Computed example of a mutant assay.
Amino acid sequence: MLIDQTSPKSFASDNHAGVHPDVLEAITHANHGDAPAYGGDDWTATFERHIEATFGPQANGFAVLNGAGANMVGLALTLGCYDAIICADSAHIATHEAGAAERLLGVKLMTAPTTNGKLTPTDITTRLGGLGNPHESQPTVVSVSQVTELGTCYTPEELSALATAAHDAGLLLHVDGARLANAAAHLHCDLRTITTDAGVDVFSFGGTKNGALAAEAVVVLNPALSTAVPFLRRQSLQLASKMRFIATQLSALLDNDLWRRNADHANKMAQRLAAGVADLPAITIQHPVESNAVFASLPHDAVRRLQERYTFHFWDEPSGVVRWMTAFDTTPDHVDEFLADIHKTLSE
């Protein structure tokens, strides 16, 4: 089915956006002649150098196909067959990956209720009572989402505190960085500040939600974990044969901070949207707007009427909470058109 190019901009997900022109140009540039398969090409080598330059000389980058795969490879590095992952109850691995961690990794998720989707050091320490007990799964890794599933961001200080709590207990810290770029843009810092410098052991760096066609990376900062990645990536079906087309997309995002420009623009469009509904008594913003997500509650009948024209989804239907997402290609006109219809719908 062809997409109606005249339809209003989707506010359902940044996955609905197209591909940034610079990323498409990079793919086209890589599409000349033959190149070795499975990452033995110049484009992949360039990407790996970008990772080292961005995150430090100890950083090893491995391009993969999608975010869930990046999480499974990254977490698999940290786990044994009787281990457990401490994470927020709203974490993507716990809610939106169809039980991949339980089925593919065969581990237990120790979830914690959170405020605005963010774990605290106490959430870690209170789940360590079973360490050494053969009757209980053994927590070995803490996994957090940056940005969280509720659109909030961990500060560098918060991440460092989590890393300290995890490392003091002999655990590792994993970050699901599907929207890592949006967090860095919001925090006005570089990517290294919220990964390498914060004490993270392994993380994913998302490209698909920030202008790439289909490209994510697993970045390993803990040298003890790097050796197993090539094998786990292959076993997890995340090793692309024509790797140059994946790696070059990530290089395009990292080159000249395209990742930041895309993420910063998406964040600003979310702020514009949130500000535009702030004066409406029928709408309540549910969480701080710190990235490119706006969580708002509004009457169900208004949601249904707006969904006749715009694409977005309920986040919590019984409570009337929806999630509106913006992307690198969302324009002020897109937002203002949506806002005008929201105001009109609520006034009817």
Rank of each mutant, 00 (worst) to 15 (best):
D176G: 10
L75S: 07
Q138V: 04
G117L: 10
L105K: 01
D197Q: 12
A63P: 01
G80R: 08
A70M: 05
A327L: 04
F55Y: 11
A184W: 01
V229D: 10
D336M: 03
D41R: 10
N210S: 06
I246H: 13
V147H: 05
D279W: 02
D201V: 01
E290Q: 14
I86H: 11
T152A: 08
A45P: 12
G151W: 08
P36M: 11
L191N: 10
E157C: 00
C189K: 09
D22R: 15
A270P: 05
T248M: 02
Q238E: 12
L253T: 00
V294M: 05
G69Q: 03
I86G: 13
L239G: 09
L104R: 15
A101S: 11
H92L: 11
A274C: 04
E348V: 12
S137G: 15
L225H: 11
A340H: 15
D4I: 01
G74A: 02
L239M: 11
T248S: 09
P134H: 00
V303M: 10
A184F: 00
D341V: 03
G33W: 02
A30S: 15
G40R: 08
Q286W: 04
D42E: 15
R260F: 06
D197W: 08
E149M: 07
A35C: 06
V64A: 02
E157L: 10
N31R: 12
N71V: 11
H343C: 08
G276L: 02
T248R: 14
D41Y: 00
E52M: 11
R233A: 07
N222A: 13
V229M: 09
I124N: 02
I342C: 14
S10D: 07
V321T: 14
S10W: 06
T140P: 09
K242E: 13
F338I: 00
D22Y: 09
D279V: 00
A247P: 02
L280N: 10
A282C: 03
M269P: 07
M243V: 01
E97G: 00
E25M: 00
V175F: 09
S13G: 14
E216Q: 12
H287D: 04
N222K: 13
G40P: 02
H265C: 04
V219A: 03
F205S: 01
G132T: 03
I194R: 00
V144W: 04
R305Q: 15
P139M: 09
G18C: 04
C81H: 13
L191S: 13
T311M: 09
H186I: 00
D34K: 13
E157N: 14
M243W: 05
D168P: 04
N222P: 01
D329K: 00
T227Y: 12
C81V: 10
I86Y: 02
V294T: 01
L75F: 02
A270C: 14
A17E: 13
A94M: 11
A214W: 08
G132E: 08
C189V: 08
S204F: 06
A166M: 08
L171F: 07
